[in-house]
């Protein structure tokens, strides 16, 4: 057993972290929120150059994957930097098309691998009527039961509690494929999306915790750093515990997915609910410990705080995940 990241995987994480730090993601997020997707797409290209999207695409379609473990490494780093855009959805589309394996795969997967194509996905059977960032995507796939269609357009954006997320109803379009294999591929894609969301939430939580620890060390009240107060310490300790015990769930789910383990569904559900709840708790702790400052829109930490809640519901609510964990 080697249940920890190897040197290459760690180096990959560090290089993404370095690149995203230098890129200054807060400005990218704010532009994306305002409807200017150009900086976001430029960052998308750099992520693609680093190989992020190729990890989701098989070799015969110009990819390197699918490599779920490396993908979770990448999504943790993208979550750490609150990178905007339909990242999870694009990777889920790659998983969907790879599993579907018809000419649609050949048509779209090379573009996804190279970063030319940002895609979004709506699984109507999965209770979500929206496709994330459909306006910014080059292709929006809509699965309803046994049918998948390529949407013709997107309806008006329904602003999210995280304004960097821009959900919209996909409209119309042409049928790409029909049959039980569509539903099976969609179920696989939903699992991949849930796992990537969990990894993203884990990274989000890590940043929320790190920034809050830093703040608690520097902010003084009553003449001392507020981080010396036991209530503050204990809340941050609990935040760390929740994140630390989420991480192996995320990694084990990726290992299970890579091995096509029949248990992977349940492993993903466990990772999803745990990582997303840990991120939400981290966001609440970050907000509380930053006080009124944390409640302001102009303070960059708001970009992380606001993302936690939507991720919790995306690609599998806590209730749905818990039910799945107990499905025999």
């Amino acid at each position: 057993m080697r249940f920890h990241l190897d040197d290459e995987q760690r180096a990959f994480a560090l290089s993404l972290d370095g690149m995203l730090t230098a890129a200054g993601t807060p400005a990218v997020v704010r532009a994306w929120t305002a409807g200017d997707t150009a900086p976001g797409r430029a960052l998308w290209s750099r992520l693609a150059e680093a190989g992020v999207f190729a990890l989701a695409v098989p070799k015969q379609h110009d990819g390197l994957g699918p490599l779920p473990v490396e993908l979770t490494v990448a999504f943790t780093e993208m979550g750490r930097h609150a990178v905007p855009g339909p990242l999870v959805e694009t990777v889920a589309v790659a998983a969907f098309l790879d599993r579907l394996g018809d000419e649609a795969a050949a048509a779209w997967l090379p573009g996804i691998a190279s970063g030319r194509t940002a895609a979004s996905l709506c699984l109507l059977s999965d209770d979500s009527p929206y496709a994330l960032d459909a306006h910014a995507a080059d292709a929006v796939f809509v699965v309803e039961g046994d049918t998948v269609r390529l949407a013709a357009a997107a309806g008006p954006v329904q602003p999210s509690a995280d304004p960097a997320r821009r959900p919209a109803r996909p409209l119309g379009g042409t049928v790409l494929a029909h049959g039980p294999e569509v539903a099976a591929a969609a179920a696989h894609a939903a699992g991949v999306a849930a796992l990537m969301t969990a990894a993203q939430a884990l990274g989000l939580g890590r940043t929320l915790l790190a920034r809050t620890v830093e703040y608690a060390r520097q902010r003084t009240q009553f003449g001392v750093a507020i981080g010396s107060f036991q209530t503050v310490k204990h809340r941050l300790a609990d935040t760390l515990i929740a994140l630390e015990f989420s991480q192996p769930l995320v990694q084990a789910a990726a290992v299970a997915l890579a091995a096509r383990d029949p248990e992977s569904d349940r492993a993903i559900a466990a990772a999803k609910v745990t990582a997303c709840e840990a991120a939400c708790a981290a966001a609440r702790a970050a907000l509380q410990i930053h006080g009124a400052l944390g409640y302001t829109e102009e303070f960059d930490l708001s970009l992380w705080i606001r993302k936690a809640r939507p991720l919790r519901s995306a690609w599998g609510t806590p209730a749905a995940c818990r039910a799945r964990v107990l499905t025999p």
Binding site: L209, V213, A216, R217, V224, A225, G227, S228, F229, Q230, V232, K233, H234, L236, A237, L240, I241
Partner: peptide, 12 residues
């Protein structure tokens, strides 16, 4: 956890 893993200051 708070002092050794997170590096928060010691306090009462």
């Amino acid at each position: 956890i708070a002092e050794r893993l997170l590096g928060l200051p010691k306090g009462r």
